[in-house]
Simulated scan of single mutants.
Amino acid sequence: MNPAAPTAYERFQPWRRSFEVGFWVAQYLVSAIGNSITVGMDVRRLHLQFAAWQPAVWEASSSVVALALVPAVVWFTRRWPLHLDNWRRMLPLHLFGSLVWSALHVAGMVAIRKAIYAGQGLHYDFSPWWWEFGYEYLKDVRSYAGIVLAIEGYRLLLRRLQGEASLLGVPDEGPPMEAVERPERFLVRKLGREFLVAANDVEWLQAAGNYVNLRVRGHDYPLRSTIAGIEGKLDPARFVRIHRSYIVNLDQVASIEPLDTGDARVHLKDGTSLPGSRTYRGGLRERIGEGA
């Protein structure tokens, strides 16, 4: 790959936040408008005694609260991601999450509707609440599932564009090329292509939920692992833990800047600065001294 030519993933980064926010805003705006029109048509067709503004309030209140809850689902799925290899274990947790999401959604939209109705001199009735909540939950559990699938599908696409690393496993036949317990290389899959990355080329590693990002020549490759799990597989003579979320290649360390808090800032040769925790600061200084 030509390092001078930005990849599709890198070109997307400046627009990523705008795209993500815009997607959900557009999603719920279109949903509110479309549902308001169809509900209004049903009201007129059935000759129900509702003013024209009422269906718009119902749908808009639902969409506004659902949109406000999207960041909570993003956080929840980042903390407890739902994948093909763990869906049986995570399904009960996400069923509970859907119940909480529905309770917040219903409480928010009912509060908005009551406030608007009161402003019009009317009363919004949400009773019996247990029956109405059951009805809303049957819709909300599908909405929650759709949000989770959209988020996880989007993350999977980003990982494919970015490139996803894995440990070299034991082959189907014959002995492994290298010790699986402490591999010298990582296998990276990117847009249908596979290539090997030498472990010593990894500049630093950062924990990111259920993944650890490998930093290699300016690119990040997520590896499905915990930071503690991958630490045990790296060469301790070359890699050292500097923070609960960071491991650094000692060959990349330029200097250590002590901070008044007792922590440190670790400066790398490429100009990158990483946080150093006081818990690991002494070990880092000792290791650098040994190398010197």
Rank of each mutant, 00 (worst) to 15 (best):
R88M: 13
V57Y: 05
W87S: 05
A32Y: 02
S61E: 04
P71G: 00
E59G: 08
L84I: 14
R78K: 07
R44D: 03
P81R: 03
S31E: 08
W75T: 07
S36W: 05
T77W: 02
L82P: 02
P81H: 03
G34Q: 01
I37P: 06
V70A: 02
D42S: 12
V57D: 06
L48T: 08
N86T: 06
R44A: 13
P71V: 00
V73I: 12
Q54C: 01
M41Q: 08
W87D: 06
V73M: 10
G34K: 02
S31L: 07
W87T: 04
G34I: 01
A72Y: 05
V65S: 00
Q54S: 06
Q27S: 13
V74N: 08
V74I: 15
S36A: 15
R78W: 09
V74R: 10
V70H: 00
T77F: 06
V74H: 11
W53V: 12
A32W: 01
A32F: 04
Q54Y: 09
R45M: 14
I33H: 01
P71F: 00
I37N: 10
P55Y: 11
E59D: 07
R79K: 14
W75A: 13
R78A: 11
S61T: 02
A52W: 15
S61M: 00
F76K: 07
S63Y: 03
V74C: 08
W53I: 11
N86K: 06
R44K: 06
F50I: 00
I33S: 02
L82Y: 05
S61K: 00
R88H: 11
V57P: 06
G34D: 03
M41Y: 13
A51Y: 06
P81C: 03
V64W: 02
T38F: 14
A32K: 02
D42C: 09
L82V: 11
W75L: 15
Q27R: 09
L46C: 08
R44S: 07
W58Y: 10
W58T: 08
P55A: 08
R78F: 11
A68S: 13
I37C: 11
A68Q: 05
M41G: 05
L69W: 07
T38A: 13
S63K: 07
T77Y: 03
V39C: 10
A72M: 09
R78S: 10
W53D: 15
V65L: 00
V70I: 08
R45Q: 14
V74P: 04
L48H: 09
R79L: 10
V43A: 05
V43L: 04
R44H: 09
A60T: 13
V70N: 01
V43Q: 01
F50R: 01
P55R: 05
A32N: 04
R88N: 10
L84K: 06
L48K: 10
A68P: 15
H47N: 14
A52Y: 11
R45L: 15
R45G: 14
S36Y: 04
S31V: 12
T38E: 14
